[in-house]
Design a protein around this nucleic acid. Structure first.
Lengths: 345, 345
DNA sequence: AACTGCTATCTAAACGATTAGATGCGATGA
DNA sequence: TCATCGCATCTAATCGTTTAGATAGCAGTT
């Protein structure tokens, strides 16, 4: 309790107090590479406790060349899907007693590169890159620094980088089949503006699922609520809305919902919707979204595991169909919302 | 381009190559405390560039006792309000070329303390604590380590700690007045389960605004979508819903919306709603929420400014009323959603 | 010629931990 | 009794920067 802000306690202080050298103190603190006599260990522990000693991780990092810090680069922290992914990555790292440096690239390849640069200068032990289409390939930077890097959700496709992404083929097939089960002959798809990326995988999966149906419409817009909202209003105004729609992302689905509401289009009555993300937000839209829930936690866990060099080898978990209201089912309309969707504070 | 992963370039390498001592290299790199002759400076810069030298921030931190890293502790990263706040804090730090260590306390005072402990061990230059009611007071820890700490949104009320929070009095008054303008005599309030915290400030502001109206109902539930959703369903089932409601948070408002939808209650027709947060999500609910938007960016900026010791002295910015649909106005129903709400990727 | 003042640079001591190699010492075996 | 072995511990180098103090060279003064 006598520690002063202006004079932090160091290893040397503890050693002096315990009447040993700094080496033994170090051995005790981290069950060091060499054993210490029980009596001495006690003395050291006591001294450390009395002085309130806290190891200086910076000094440790300098010497041992490992910081216990991992850099997390986000394409867009505003997007709840990415934000949820980030949360799970942070938790997975926390479980392993590592700290998370976070940074937001805002869809800019330059800023992404810059961030990785700064993280590397801070000597991170690893990099997790939650990237979107158009994200720069920073594998070379990481490799030059000898730091392991893993992409999550989307990564360069040249095979040089490790990428963790869920396989959506089954999920999309299931979503389309479910809407067909509601009697919809033609199931449309709302994809992203470009053709690359994991969401393109979703699109091709949809194409496979509706193969042979020339009336199945492919729509495109940005992965944003605003874009999907105005697209929906435009289609509604031109009476060109499909009756059943699978959206690539929750953001788009939420935009569709608000656009439909504003246009007086009933969901699911006039337009049935299933989204392919399943972020927590999807449980409390009006109406609640039926989704195929991405295994975000498993993806985060796998990514962090890959950083440690261990290759879990497990294929990505499947995305289960979560039936709620927007597809035309009763969903949980009459049950209280499930508490697992968002635990109360 | 010849740098190898296994042999990082150090100051010494650059010095050797430039034919100088390490001191001058250091002086050049950071426009050091001493001047360097122009010619020498050129040689050093050239050598550094050729070798691809990147200063080791860990070593620098050890020597100069400043890491350029700030710790950000979040009460709940799942909550979009906190998440948005976190994003703005990260951006404010980014602007000052500082890195952000992030951690999620999950409403646990123990974990919050633990996180602060670990951040301090990592020698952060400052702490930003986005806390909720019940968050532990960690000022003592930070103070003992001589690290500046700032609370955002909510902090200990004993006056020892610096706390940044928006003043909501005017905002609440404005919200109530707006609903009265729509002809509602009695404006109810949905607050949190407890009475402490900044949201209690919102509650007392409401009490002041509806003073003299004995029919103005005070409702309470957790700050979660699920809780507000089921509360709304229960009230609707018992025909006990108010006609006009101000909610303390967006999360609650969104829960009210989904509960109302599931109960067949029309918003804003049967129930008018205004929320007091104004996170980006609120623009794309069905119907779009009328809110008083918290000046999150200003709060983040102010918090980070406080960390640097400068006291901006500015009072918290007011929360402006953003009129959309849920209050009964036309809102932006017929305009496409404003692009500033969520920029497309 | 000796001295003063500058400037540009070098030398070397920190920062706080980790850890290989040296040392001291008691027990064991021949 | 003396070498040998193991254990517990100490000594000191090291990680890559920063920066105060020493130094060298040169121009200007007296």
């Amino acid at each position: 309790m006598t520690k002063r802000a202006d004079k932090p306690i160091t290893l040397t202080d503890v050693a002096r107090r315990a009447g040993t050298s700094t080496a033994v103190v170090s051995y005790v603190i981290n069950n060091g590479p060499r054993p210490v006599a029980a009596a001495t260990r006690e003395r050291v522990l006591a001294a450390a406790a009395e002085l309130g000693y806290r190891p200086n991780r910076i000094a440790r990092a300098l010497r041992s060349r490992t910081t216990g810090v991992v850099g997390l680069v986000l394409a867009d922290a505003s997007n709840p899907y990415f934000a949820a992914l980030a949360r799970h990555v942070e938790q997975a790292l926390e479980r392993r007693e590592r700290l998370t440096l976070i940074g937001n690239a805002g869809y800019s390849a330059d800023r992404q590169r810059d961030l990785v640069d700064r993280f590397l200068a801070a000597q991170v032990d690893g990099l997790v890159i939650v990237s979107a289409e158009g994200g720069d390939d920073v594998t070379d930077l990481a490799q030059a620094a000898g730091v392991p890097a893993v992409y999550v959700h989307h990564g360069p496709s040249d095979g040089r980088a490790r990428v963790v992404a869920a396989d959506n083929h089954d999920a999309v097939r299931e979503a389309v089949a479910h809407l067909r089960g509601h009697g919809h002959r033609h199931v449309a798809f709302l994809g992203g503006p470009h053709d690359e990326g994991p969401v393109a995988g979703r699109r091709t999966a949809w194409e496979a699922a509706v193969a042979g149906d020339p009336w199945a419409a492919l729509l495109r817009c940005d992965y944003s609520r605003a874009a999907a909202d105005s697209l929906t209003r435009r289609l509604a105004a031109g009476d060109a809305l499909p009756r059943a729609l699978v959206t690539a992302t929750d953001e788009q689905a939420i935009g569709v919902l608000s656009g439909a509401w504003a246009s007086g289009v009933a969901v699911p009555g006039r337009l049935a919707v299933i989204s392919l993300d399943g972020t927590p937000e999807s449980a409390h839209t009006a109406p609640a979204l039926t989704v195929t829930r991405q295994p975000l936690e498993a993806m985060a866990e796998q990514a962090v595991e890959l950083l440690s060099g261990r290759d879990p080898g497990v294929p990505a978990a499947r995305a289960p169909l979560v039936v709620r209201r927007s597809c035309g089912c009763d969903g949980d309309q009459h049950r209280p919302p499930t508490p697992t969707d968002r635990p109360p504070p």
